[in-house]
Design a protein around this nucleic acid. Structure first.
Lengths: 147, 147
DNA sequence: CTGCTTGCAAAGGCTTTGCAGAACA
DNA sequence: TGTTCTGCAAAGCCTTTGCAAGCAG
């Protein structure tokens, strides 16, 4: 059902290998954070990661969580989602994809890249290269059960 | 040259009319802010608006700027841009458009809607309607003068 | 006179930073 | 032994809020 999870690490040595391939020393704190993040494709805030790691019985400081998530994002392990100005989300789906964003509930849903096709792209400004395309389909809640 | 400016208000009574059409009482503070915003299509932070209004010789409080920009966004006069997690930008371009975002310089450039074509859109989640499509072409700086 | 608006200052929430101690190669 | 990492607490920054004074209809 969840076709987007196929390239997630399945066990601890997968996880450690993933960190190492990205030039990240696999300390115990980083592994705990990675375990939470890559359990499934999801979008978590730093605070949510802190809470989850803590609730699993591991002690970790807030600063380490923030620093580690910043490091993971820098190394390309996760991407950041800036939809809510009040908090950054870290996205464990490393495959190209887009988002549905329900503005009324805050819910964020991945859209597989194959489901949106872009016909044409304008010329880029001078001295720039295209790094990534972010697409967000902003939704509103409605109660049309039938439609 | 600037084809996106054609629907900007040209004078003070245009501006006041625009506020009134959006159910906003045209107080002097709101007019000063609107004058700055709608002088051209641009992306300004609350602090930039405050500085600009102040530098034009009008006294206005920070709280009023934040509240007014929030009000304008709520009433659909401007849209918000959440690309930089550290500050919200207010976009005075009210026509449908997308953005180039130079991640190295922070520069933000409008893309006219006609320049990107989307072939297909996936089915929406239940009980939702499509409100808006945000597209950002994330760029990196490079020095290929010839390419 | 009544309700909306403004402004000041304080509070709030997320994130970063400085620095000392711990861990690791 | 020297570099890297961690954690605590404090600071920083953007933004919101409470409340009193001002203004408008």
């Amino acid at each position: 059902m969840n076709t987007q999870a196929e390239n997630l690490p399945h066990n601890n040595s997968d996880l450690i290998g993933m960190l190492q391939r990205h030039q990240i020393m696999p300390t115990s704190q980083r592994i705990h954070i990675a375990q939470v993040l890559f359990e499934k494709t999801q979008h978590l805030s730093a605070e949510q990661v802190l809470d989850e790691v803590t609730s699993r019985g591991y002690s970790i400081s807030r600063a380490t969580v923030y620093n580690t998530l910043g490091l993971f994002a820098n190394k390309g392990l996760v991407s950041t989602v800036n939809l809510d100005p009040d908090r950054v989300l870290y996205d464990s789906n490393t495959r190209p994809h887009f988002h549905f964003h329900n503005q009324d509930t805050g819910e964020l849903i991945d859209i597989d890249m194959g489901n949106i096709e872009i016909k044409s792209i304008p010329a880029l400004p001078d001295n720039t290269t295209l790094d990534n395309i972010d697409i967000t389909l902003q939704l509103r809640q409605c109660s049309n059960d039938s439609e």
